[in-house]
């Protein structure tokens, strides 16, 4: 579904990604872990071209997307993204946050978008917040809305960039619960996170990244029980 070939990314002299090859299959839930500065967020942001790769290829559903002639907006309709800091639109109500993309892209009429938004809000238990502004919500509520906002475009894959890192501890659970349900429904997902327990539980595969490379990939049971790379062993000894 998503494939990257020899992906590199530099910011000035600083090379953040040093040649990554990886393929995400439909239905997989890939969790990426690694120390900060390892390039895992940059890797994720290269998948929907929020960061333009310096070199290499990014493929999505059979087409290379990091070339000029591809309409990246249309590609992004199919790739939802959730950010660490939610990035809800503060000047719009919760409902408008969710409907703006389907309506503006012409995917749904205003009425249909609203209907769909209310359905989705009900699924995360926030239908009574439709008309409030983001400033009045808790962090956990904001992130659940952000997930719903991405889902409103009916994406084929969801990208999560440290979705719980900015949350107070007591709110982490409610957000992970929503992501877990989504996983159970068969959504393809790529998740960058520090929640090792969650990775173990949800992932079909866990990747360990450090210094711009994927150093190890394995199903979670093996990944956590039998780490081979010494740096992964070191990393796990610190976080577990």
């Amino acid at each position: 579904m998503i494939a990257v070939k020899n992906l590199t990314k530099s910011f000035g002299d600083n090379q953040v990604l040093r040649g990554i090859d990886y393929t995400v299959e439909k239905g997989e839930k890939i969790v990426i872990v690694g120390p900060s500065g390892s390039g895992k967020s940059t890797f994720l942001r290269c998948l929907n071209l929020l960061e333009q790769p310096t070199g290499g290829e990014v493929w999505f559903e059979g087409t290379q997307i990091n070339v000029r002639k591809v309409d990246i907006d249309k590609v992004r309709w199919k790739m939802g993204m959730v950010f660490q800091h939610f990035n809800l639109f503060p000047h719009l109500t919760v409902l408008q946050n969710i409907t703006i993309a389907p309506v503006q892209t012409g995917k749904l009429t205003k009425e249909k978008a609203k209907e769909k938004a209310m359905d989705l809000l009900a699924r995360v238990g926030l239908q009574d917040r439709a008309d409030t502004y983001p400033a009045m919500l808790s962090g956990g509520q904001k992130q659940r809305i952000a997930i719903v906002r991405a889902l409103a475009m009916e994406p084929d894959v969801m990208l999560f960039d440290e979705p719980t890192s900015a949350l107070d501890p007591e709110m982490v659970g409610e957000v992970l619960e929503v992501i877990r349900e989504l996983a159970d429904q068969g959504m393809t997902m790529v998740i960058v996170t520090h929640e090792m327990g969650f990775a173990r539980e949800v992932a079909t595969k866990v990747l360990f990244m450090d210094e711009g490379k994927i150093l190890e990939e394995a199903p979670p049971a093996e990944f956590f029980a039998n780490p081979k790379n010494p740096r992964l062993q070191d990393f796990l000894s610190k976080v577990l």
């Binding site: 929020l50 907006d73 590609v75 993309a101 892209t105 906002r149 991405a150 475009m153």
Partner: peptide, 9 residues
């Protein structure tokens, strides 16, 4: 980024 990631131009 949020706007663009949703596929808005």
């Amino acid at each position: 980024e949020a706007g663009r990631s949703l596929g808005l131009s």
